[in-house]
């Protein structure tokens, strides 16, 4: 039992069990939609967690990459006549390129320059999305055509539940593998001490850049799913608040914990839905819960609970 619990893929196993069993208790399409949204944001959060939890860098503009992914699948089929899967892949490629271009000069520097640069980058994208009305429909947004492969189009919240869940799982397994690879060990070394990592011969700038690009691709893929799921997107997909929400998911769930990203995303997607009964006090309650989690479960929900269980 101990062996199983400590296996590196144990979190992935536990999460897939949840994904398979969940439909047994989901009563309607509304719950499927909320669950699919959880997986979409969890996917973006896993990517951001690689950057924050392992490379020790913060991105305050990650929703910008979600925006690139989302608008790619909206604009590609509508204006460029691309099939939606190609737009999907193209969006991810574009995000990787942009992350490379933004990250390359900045990640050579020490400190939190990336946070500032990505902050500006996210704002710029949101402005571009609302100003280029010819392509993006402006502040009112634009419709996204259905995701179609081989002439079959995907519709309905249940279908998206399985697609987003599977994608999240794949993303999570890749992340778990990355963490256990030499790259992952190098990243953790950077997180603990950059000086020590450099002494050991780790190319810090290259490692940070690589993980930034990977996390951008995660966000872009999540953004594309988000657009397909909603069928309509507005520029606030890449807004500053969305970026902050992603950071909050990572921190609440637990820095460096892949399962934590799922828990953090679930918390922040589902809380506004459960708190609607409080009406005018909704936002206050949301803030209080987040504060309480940060005060009492300082390392994040999953790492703190795992430690408590390990001790017991």
């Amino acid at each position: 039992m101990r062996g199983l619990l400590n296996h590196r893929l144990f979190p992935a196993l536990a999460m897939s069990a949840v994904i398979v069993l969940l439909p047994l208790v989901l009563p309607s399409a509304y719950y499927y939609r909320v669950a699919a949204l959880v997986f979409v944001f969890a996917l973006a959060a896993v990517g951001l967690n690689l950057l924050m939890g392992f490379a020790g860098q913060v991105s305050l503009g990650h929703a910008g990459f979600m925006g690139i992914g989302a608008y790619a699948v909206a604009i590609g089929p509508t204006h460029l006549n691309l099939p939606s899967w190609l737009a999907f892949v193209g969006g991810a490629g574009l995000s990787a390129l942009v992350a490379f271009a933004v990250g390359r000069p900045i990640l050579r520097l020490k400190g939190h320059y990336l946070a500032v640069a990505t902050l500006g980058f996210g704002l710029l994208l949101a402005i571009a999305f609302s100003n280029e009305a010819r392509f993006t429909g402006g502040p009112d947004g634009m419709a996204v055509s259905r995701f179609a492969v081989f002439g079959l189009s995907v519709r309905g919240a249940q279908a998206w539940y399985w697609i987003t869940a599977a994608s999240f799982l794949i993303g999570a397994v890749l992340a778990l593998n990355l963490i256990e690879s030499p790259t992952g060990r190098a990243l953790r070394a950077i997180h603990d001490s950059e000086v020590a990592a450099r002494v050991l011969g780790v190319d810090i700038a290259r490692m940070k850049l690589a993980v930034f690009v990977v996390s951008a691709v995660y966000a872009s893929v999540a953004g594309s799913y988000f657009a397909f799921l909603n069928g309509h997107i507005t520029p606030d997909v890449s807004g500053f608040l969305r970026s902050i929400e992603l950071v909050a998911m990572v921190v609440l769930g637990g820095l460096g914990s892949v399962a934590g990203s799922l828990v953090g995303a679930a918390l922040l997607v589902m809380l506004p839905q459960t708190l609607t009964s409080l009406h005018d006090y909704e936002h206050m309650a949301l803030g209080l819960i987040i504060m309480a989690v940060m005060i009492f479960l300082r390392a994040g929900i999953v790492p703190t609970l795992a430690r408590a269980l390990g001790r017991a």
Partner: peptide, 21 residues
């Protein structure tokens, strides 16, 4: 009444909720 906070994504979720739930 559900408050979407002027977020189209939240509006869509609440719309599903109104219809389904």
């Amino acid at each position: 009444v559900y408050d979407d906070g002027a977020d189209a994504n939240a509006a869509r979720t609440f719309a599903t909720r109104l219809v389904e739930e």
